[in-house]
Design a protein around this nucleic acid. Sequence first.
DNA 1: AGAGGACCTCAAAGCGCTTTGGCTATTCAT
DNA 2: ATGAATAGCCAAAGCGCTTTGAGGTCCTCT
Lengths: 340, 340
Amino acid sequence: MNLKQLSDMLDLSQTTVSRALNGYPEVNEDTRRRVADAAKRHGYRPNPSARRLATGKAGMIGYVMPTGAAVDIDPHFVEFLSGLGDYARGHELDLVLSPTAADEEETTYRRVVANKQVDAVYVSSPRPADRRVTLLNQLGIPFIVHGRSEGLGFDYPFMDIDNEAAFHDAARLLIQLGHAKVGLINGDIGQTFAIFRERGVRRALAASGLTLAAERVRSVAMTEENGFRASMSLLQGNAPPTAILCSSLIMALGAVRAIRDLGLTIPGDVSLIAHDDVFPWLKPENFSVPLTTTRSSIRAAGSRIAERLAAKLSGLETEPRGEVWPVDLVVRGSIAGAKT
Amino acid sequence: MNLKQLSDMLDLSQTTVSRALNGYPEVNEDTRRRVADAAKRHGYRPNPSARRLATGKAGMIGYVMPTGAAVDIDPHFVEFLSGLGDYARGHELDLVLSPTAADEEETTYRRVVANKQVDAVYVSSPRPADRRVTLLNQLGIPFIVHGRSEGLGFDYPFMDIDNEAAFHDAARLLIQLGHAKVGLINGDIGQTFAIFRERGVRRALAASGLTLAAERVRSVAMTEENGFRASMSLLQGNAPPTAILCSSLIMALGAVRAIRDLGLTIPGDVSLIAHDDVFPWLKPENFSVPLTTTRSSIRAAGSRIAERLAAKLSGLETEPRGEVWPVDLVVRGSIAGAKT
DNA sequence: AGAGGACCTCAAAGCGCTTTGGCTATTCAT
DNA sequence: ATGAATAGCCAAAGCGCTTTGAGGTCCTCT
């Protein structure tokens, strides 16, 4: 059933039927009802391809996904997707993933925009002065950044958690417990979230006249193995920390293993706090010693971003608003006072 | 630059230009070259929306993604996506994710097909007599199943690993080491992969006159916590196994924790083998006791499926072929002879 | 009574491509 | 030399929608 058939059936023009269905004002309410009824009864659905060609709108959101032998999409992405789906289903909102080689992201963005494949895009894992953000801003396609960039010189829409405050508060707690030597196992320092976290830790230490020695910081891709190695090298170094902050639960697994391998205990010898993105399949309370965490559901973030993207599609959200969520600090058994 | 402008510029009809670009035979080779040159020089790219409307082909592949409060997309999906991306980038092949409530999958499939949003779809986590497969078969859209269904009564295209053989071989190895009481911590038994794995274990045991007691089997969602609980209940039951087979590395984390909590050792008291889907962020060789695994890269599978889907789009693959990959058994320190 | 709005509706022109059916040379066999 | 076959190209008709520009009715006000 297409528009022509439907309008013939109703003895109306295609124009009127189209307008009735799309809520234009110049249609009599009676007519509109009649049309809506008939449409529903005959299961008429406008052909999206045709609509797309006519309007230039795709009704989908996009994500340019870097892949490649050297690139591992991180498991957080799946939680993000779950959240996105939570909102998007029920709104018939689809997501287009455009895989790309890491060094061709810009080309891919241009292609996606030129082809009008999607009406808005979502950007993840931003870096300072992220070129993608600049590009999208130039291209004029609506977008939202999950996380934040820095030093861009213009406003852009983002949704981030307060990484700095989270790690500040966590570090302050450790300091209050008497820890002066705090170690940080961070994610890739090229990404803004890691920068903010480090900044938070530094600020907390500075407030007590302490500093974060470079030798107590590691910035690595967030795998269990890297968590292990980083912990090993921290604890076996010449200035071993008595407390460790860790940027992910997965790295914390490695940290726990390292601490145990060295014959140390948590929290007796080493206190441990990690950031928890809230995975259903790995929970901090189930660690051998329940883990104190800074917690923020990445799934909830995904849902919120989908909501805002949808608002952009329908023209409801238009200014480049930034949104920052506070992060919970959840205390569990993995921290204790520093040995004196 | 659109087709009309390009053809005007070349003093050719749109027909000829279109045909030249799409490789139709009724174009002189000289003309074709001339057209191709001009197209490249002016950066002409056919408008996908227009092409879509005219041909009914979208040039994209689809995935109907169940979500909802009760649904956790599992972390394997991200690895699968990586693999898919490995192939798809470089082919300008995009993936459309259509989120759906779990109880409306069928509706969503129908919508996606009716809208011609995609030319082929990929189906994951199949169950026996999976209704999605029946539906897609009826709807006549090309598709590929990652995994297998059973008892469908018709052939369909799939790509699966040999779960039965993998777990058969793993169980046989344990038996050869003298284990008579083998436990199985499986995934959701509603899914075919879990059924095949259990079948493999049973067959191996049967070959030695042993059986897999129901009380030594657990079928649960694959989380660390469930791995822990299942292990606890197995080892504290009235017929504790001396060896455990585990359907995922994540559950194996929980198993290791349970075994340790009970004051038992690996492999002294309990031998452990798990299936490894090859995550970059969690490796069996880095477990406190390196884990023996059945290994199969889910990322490689993703890549292969993308390749076959692309073949379907271009009409190269047409018969409903099934493809089964063998699985490696990688022996590491987590298994030993049974205590006598 | 006639002008001016308000309110509805319509025909037709896009959107940019593919594909059908036909036309004109040229080549080939007879 | 003639008819058929073939190669190469074109005009125009879709694909199914949205949107523009143009009426046509009916009511109200002066």
